[in-house]
Design a binder for these strands. Structure first.
Lengths: 244, 244
DNA sequence: GCAAAAATGATAGTAATACTATTATATTTG
DNA sequence: CAAATATAATAGTATTACTATCATTTTTGC
């Protein structure tokens, strides 16, 4: 019965509804208490996204967040041991959501280059619609990723945190893209570097578009998606006269 | 007389000595008092580089720096109004130094593609030799750029600081590279995005190499330089059957 | 329906940060 | 050598990033 209902919802409401039934999996060492497990937890996530977007991660504090949600600083500390861990949670959630879309978008697509185009689209596009079935506003979260993601790994603790598995989701997204690249052109020598360059580069181009428009071609007419699709197609095109 | 001496030094000691005669120009709104103008100033720069590399920018404070150089916190504040401004100083200095090398490396090179290869080499290579004529250790500074550069612009104040001219040097480096790209292939549609992707992407690949080796091909055998040269050559190669 | 457990809230406290301000002491320079 | 300038020392402030404790509310298991 549940299975049938689920199936119908998938058919009828497509991905948007599917997501409301699935739980995005975040490595559980990141939090002390799962924010998805309570109302307060969900409010913490919902409003931390809005507040970080508003004042920036550097100015964001648990005290300010507490004020926003009418809760206490000390209660937030029962979910996350630091604001850095909260950022790791948000970014992991984001990449898990991207991963899900990538799998969904490429599934059952026969042509491998077509798969690649769809995968690149998923990781480079601007999020324009809030799924709105959850407490997480993906449009705003996407902005946070553009503006703050680097700060989650540009720390002295990267290596130990990496060992703890805090970046697995991100790495998995890149490896999936890398695998698709290798399928399209098995002779290409740098699939992982190309994949990581696309993912990181797309965030960067979005940032430049908003703040340093003179050093990007992305803007009104050109999207990061177009730029990276063009680039990837050219890089992977096997020319017969592959000189030296 | 001075002119003749300078000329001789250039001829005799080449770039290393040239740099010891030239002063790298940093936008002067970044500092309160020019650190190049005094002994204390130079010690601030020299040891801030070492200390940031050692403990990371996030843990770095003027108090700790003062302790290292046997000086007082309050004296450092007379040179820079905040540690953020000091980071802007270091990064501007770095990009000015890179710009200088780029101009030097491409000057008088007849073949335009050769110019491009040299320019890419300058912005993507690992710095392996300290020029050692100044108080600035370029090897260590390069590591700081890899680990901390993004933090200089991923702030809520980017737009106002950009207006103040704090990022001009960086943007000029990218524009120079973009211009060279356009000369090699005037029909290529995204020279600025390609240039910014190479510069930022190279820093990222260096970072991945050190901390997330599973999502890059760069490592022992492959350098970011090789990856980006290969990529750029493929992207700019004009194929006659440019389909659609 | 109630007791125990769990969750949340309120308050206080700490060491460190990112500064500003003031005054004292060197050092430079005209 | 006096005046100006640079540096050092000290103190103070508001905020941050927490930890700890205790009180209150909510949930749950029987």
């Amino acid at each position: 019965m549940i299975v049938i209902l689920l199936y119908l919802r998938i058919k009828f409401f497509s991905m948007i509804s599917l997501l409301s039934n699935l739980k995005i999996a975040v490595p559980d060492k990141i939090f002390i208490k799962d924010p998805e497990s309570s109302d307060l937890g969900k409010r913490i996530i919902e409003h931390s996204i809005l507040l970080i977007d508003d004042i920036g991660f550097d100015s964001f504090t648990f005290k300010k967040l507490g004020a926003q949600i009418g809760s206490n600083e000390s209660s937030i500390y029962r979910y996350f041991e630091s604001k850095h861990k909260l950022l790791l949670y948000l970014t992991s959630w984001y990449w898990a959501w991207i991963e899900y879309q990538m799998v969904f978008a490429t599934h059952n697509v026969a042509d491998e280059n077509d798969q690649l185009l769809r995968a690149i689209d998923v990781v480079t596009r601007t999020i324009k619609e809030d799924v709105a079935f959850t407490h997480i506003n993906e449009i705003v979260l996407n902005r946070i990723i553009i503006n703050e993601y680097s700060k989650s790994y540009l720390t002295k603790e990267v290596d130990s945190e990496n060992k703890e598995g805090y970046f697995v989701v991100y790495k998995r997204v890149i490896r999936r893209l890398s695998d698709i690249i290798s399928h399209v052109n098995p002779d290409y020598e740098f699939p992982s570097s190309l994949a990581s360059t696309i993912v990181e580069g797309a965030l960067h181009q979005h940032f430049l578009k908003a703040h340093f428009s003179s050093i990007t071609d992305c803007g009104k007419d050109v999207t990061p998606t177009e730029f990276f699709i063009s680039l990837t197609q050219k890089v992977l095109k096997t020319t017969t006269d592959e000189s030296r």
